[in-house]
């Protein structure tokens, strides 16, 4: 009798397990940086004293959350991009006035498809050289995706 009761309870619990799977989002959002419309591509050159436009397509199975763009110096070659291609780098140097950019952007309305566009101004007085351009993207459920490209900041002339 006792065993039968335990069995009933176990069966009931197993049954409830399966029913609650439907509501859960188990997929990370997607950053499409390889698209021809995306900017900057890996190994791109950006120019100080100018503004450029970040462009990428984000998708998610349910609802996109927010995204963040971070640009930091890679003068010590501490990391590399998520792209397959290795970009040519300058020699290692000490930062004096490196460009630091860190900005978060809201994606309104929790869409499943979003074309991100953001204008980013590079001040004229910052150090030129190798930089990392990182994109972080969340969805509403808290999953995150990263994409990083190597870029160079130079003078236009």
């Amino acid at each position: 009798m006792r065993k039968r009761i335990v069995l009933y309870i176990l069966t009931a619990l197993v049954a409830t397990n399966c029913s609650c799977d439907e509501g859960k989002d188990m997929d990370s959002p997607v950053i499409m940086m390889n698209d021809s419309r995306a900017f900057p591509p890996n190994c791109a050159t950006l120019y100080r004293g100018e503004q450029f436009e970040f462009r990428a397509v984000f998708t998610d199975n349910r609802a996109l959350g927010n995204y963040n763009i971070e640009i930091h110096q890679n003068f010590d070659h501490h990391s590399h991009s998520t792209g397959a291609e290795e970009c040519p780098v300058d020699s290692v140097k000490t930062p004096h006035n490196p460009f630091v950019y860190n900005q978060s952007f809201a994606i309104l309305g929790s869409p499943t498809y979003y074309e991100a566009v953001a204008g980013i101004a590079i001040p004229a007085e910052i150090d030129t050289g190798d930089y990392h351009f990182m994109v972080r993207l969340t969805d509403r459920a808290g999953w995150q995706q990263l994409a990083a490209v190597s870029v160079k900041i130079a003078d236009r002339n």
Binding site: G65, N66, Y67, N68, E70, N102, S104, R136, T138, D139, R140, A141, G142, W143, Q144
Partner: peptide, 12 residues
């Protein structure tokens, strides 16, 4: 410790 959709200082 709940992972949110928000960013704070560049991190989730």
């Amino acid at each position: 410790l709940n992972p949110t959709a928000e960013y704070r200082e560049g991190l989730q």
